[in-house]
Every structure is written in C-alpha cells, then in structure tokens.
Amino acid sequence: MAKVKEYMTRGVYTVDRRATLKEVARAIAKYRVSGLAVVDEEGEIVGVVSDTDVLRAITEGKEPERTRVEEVMTPFALIIEEEASMEEAARMMVHEKVHRLFVVREEKPEHPSLSKQYLLRPAGVLTSSDIVAYIAE
C-alpha cells in the first residue's frame, strides 16, 4: 500500500503571523501553493492560512493591506504520520473537508488537530494534488 511519505512534499512554506493578507497572496502566487503555515516570532508554527481563507476575508470587507494573517488563519492544522497510507490520507481529507495535511514522523495524538508540540517540526505537507499524482500512477 502506498505511503504518505512517498508522495508528500518535504518542507513547508511559511509566513509570519504579522504579515498582511496582501503579502500572503503574494507568497501563495510566488510559490504556486494553495496554503502556507503561519509562524510566530520564534519561527514556531501557530496556524495555517489557505487561499480560500484570504478570499473569504476579502469578501467580508477586510482590507488586504491592513489585515494581519493571524486574524484569518486557522489556529491548528491536521496531521498525518508519514507512514500512513494514501487511502488513510484521503479518508482524513474527506472527513475533515480539507485539501492539505501536515505530515509528521512521530506518532500522532488521538485527535487529528495539530497540537503545538507536533507543529514544531512537520516533515512536510500532503495535498489533494499529491493524491491526484498517486492515482495517476
């Protein structure tokens, strides 16, 4: 059975929690990704922001040049172990209605929401595009 570690993207693109939505949009466009990890002053991950979070904030009237990412981010992320199967990753994406999972090496906690200790050093990210790549083989 194919494992998450075979299809994940290693490393995580990050943005500072004080960055504006405009800066987030710029990073998303530059790196051609659909979401970024949000980090604090010490570089620790404190949440996740996606392109749809930015979209929603703007349609709610928030100004992209004045709104900080920490105001619109999701303050947790979903994690999966790198030894998990791609089927398990698909199950988690469907159940949790997300397109992105952070991949960790350690055993995950009972609840899939990412606690701070697990956020410190994710090994990478698995997205729905990686599931497409798996099915393409």
Binding site: E87, M93, V94, H99, S128, I131, V132, I135, E137
Partner: peptide, 15 residues
C-alpha cells in the same frame, strides 16, 4: 476535480 479523486480513493474505487 481533485476533490472528486480524493473521494474516489476514499470510496475504494480502483484507478
């Protein structure tokens, strides 16, 4: 969409 393909894998449909 990619979401449809994620759901297909979840449902156990073959490639």
């Amino acid at each position: 969409s990619d979401t449809d393909l994620v759901k297909a894998l979840y449902r156990g449909l073959g490639k």
